[in-house]
Simulated scan of single mutants.
Amino acid sequence: MVALVPTEAHGDERGALLNFIEAQRAAIRRAAHGLTEEQAASRPSASELSLSGLLKHVAEVELNWLRLAQERPNERQRTQETWGDAFRLVEDETIPAVLGFWAGVAKETEEFVRSVPSLDDTFPLPKAPWFPEDGRVSVRWMLLHLVQEGARHAGHADIVRESLDGRTSFELIAAEQGR
């Protein structure tokens, strides 16, 4: 049972970074494997985090960074009033719908990364207290940040899942592979 990022990372830095991002996406998706909507929405710890909320959050965060890099408006940008909805499914949202949305974002991210002339190309950061004044980051930095963000939340997802039913990431990898 292999649990490592493929070593044949498309033969280049872009492929390697995209493979590491996909490995984190897969870990988060896997944490919800086999759960009902109700189970995935539950919060089994003192934290407000749920698996379905984590799925939604990481998909929206990836879209936000992609739109920043593309220097386009984010059609799903959160307002102060809707910020709490970023970590939970609302109205008619379902896990399959969120996963479908995220798959579309992932495809668009890969297409953008493959098309940008250089990973050294930069884009401006928005005005926010947590960003430097007139800050800019490179596409490479964004990709590394997506690895970091994904890894952080994959760890959260592992803990939430194990708290729900005791299943660990290795057990879930085996279940995905039919073992």
Results as ranks from 00 to 15, higher is better:
residue 69 A to H: 05
residue 116 V to H: 08
residue 138 S to Y: 10
residue 53 G to A: 02
residue 130 W to G: 05
residue 102 W to P: 03
residue 91 E to H: 15
residue 137 V to C: 09
residue 99 L to C: 13
residue 89 L to E: 11
residue 102 W to I: 02
residue 46 A to F: 09
residue 19 N to V: 01
residue 67 R to G: 04
residue 93 E to Q: 15
residue 126 P to T: 08
residue 133 E to F: 05
residue 69 A to S: 12
residue 104 G to L: 04
residue 34 G to L: 00
residue 149 E to R: 11
residue 75 E to T: 14
residue 156 H to F: 12
residue 32 A to K: 01
residue 167 R to K: 15
residue 43 R to W: 00
residue 140 R to C: 05
residue 138 S to E: 08
residue 135 G to F: 08
residue 128 A to Q: 13
residue 174 A to F: 08
residue 37 E to G: 00
residue 6 P to Q: 05
residue 109 T to C: 09
residue 75 E to K: 12
residue 133 E to Q: 15
residue 9 A to D: 07
residue 68 L to H: 09
residue 126 P to M: 14
residue 11 G to T: 02
residue 13 E to M: 02
residue 174 A to W: 03
residue 57 H to S: 01
residue 3 A to R: 12
residue 158 D to N: 11
residue 16 A to G: 06
residue 42 S to Y: 01
residue 47 S to R: 10
residue 92 D to G: 13
residue 133 E to H: 14
residue 36 T to L: 01
residue 106 A to V: 13
residue 116 V to G: 08
residue 160 V to L: 13
residue 7 T to H: 10
residue 96 P to I: 09
residue 26 A to F: 09
residue 143 L to W: 09
residue 130 W to F: 15
residue 105 V to I: 15
residue 135 G to E: 11
residue 4 L to K: 10
residue 41 A to Q: 08
residue 153 H to C: 08
residue 12 D to F: 01
residue 117 P to T: 04
residue 21 I to K: 00
residue 130 W to I: 15
residue 87 F to A: 13
residue 171 E to M: 07
residue 91 E to Q: 15
residue 119 L to T: 10
residue 29 R to W: 08
residue 87 F to V: 14
residue 162 E to I: 06
residue 113 V to C: 11
residue 151 A to I: 00
residue 152 R to A: 08
residue 26 A to E: 14
residue 167 R to N: 06
residue 156 H to R: 04
residue 19 N to W: 14
residue 73 P to T: 04
residue 138 S to R: 06
residue 116 V to T: 14
residue 18 L to W: 03
residue 110 E to L: 11
residue 39 Q to L: 06
residue 41 A to K: 01
residue 53 G to Q: 03
residue 70 Q to M: 11
residue 155 G to S: 05
residue 98 V to N: 09
residue 150 G to M: 12
residue 101 F to Q: 10
residue 100 G to P: 04
residue 53 G to M: 02
residue 124 P to G: 06
residue 107 K to L: 12
residue 146 L to A: 09
residue 38 E to A: 15
residue 122 T to V: 10
residue 117 P to G: 09
residue 54 L to N: 05
residue 22 E to T: 12
residue 14 R to Q: 07
residue 53 G to H: 01
residue 4 L to I: 03
residue 159 I to W: 13
residue 66 L to T: 03
residue 48 E to I: 10
residue 57 H to E: 05
residue 16 A to M: 09
residue 108 E to L: 07
residue 155 G to Y: 04
residue 69 A to D: 11
residue 104 G to H: 09
residue 171 E to C: 00
residue 35 L to F: 02
residue 10 H to S: 11
residue 37 E to H: 11
residue 93 E to G: 02
residue 170 F to M: 11
residue 43 R to V: 07
residue 145 H to F: 07
residue 149 E to P: 06
residue 65 W to H: 04
residue 144 L to Y: 13
residue 171 E to W: 01
residue 153 H to F: 12
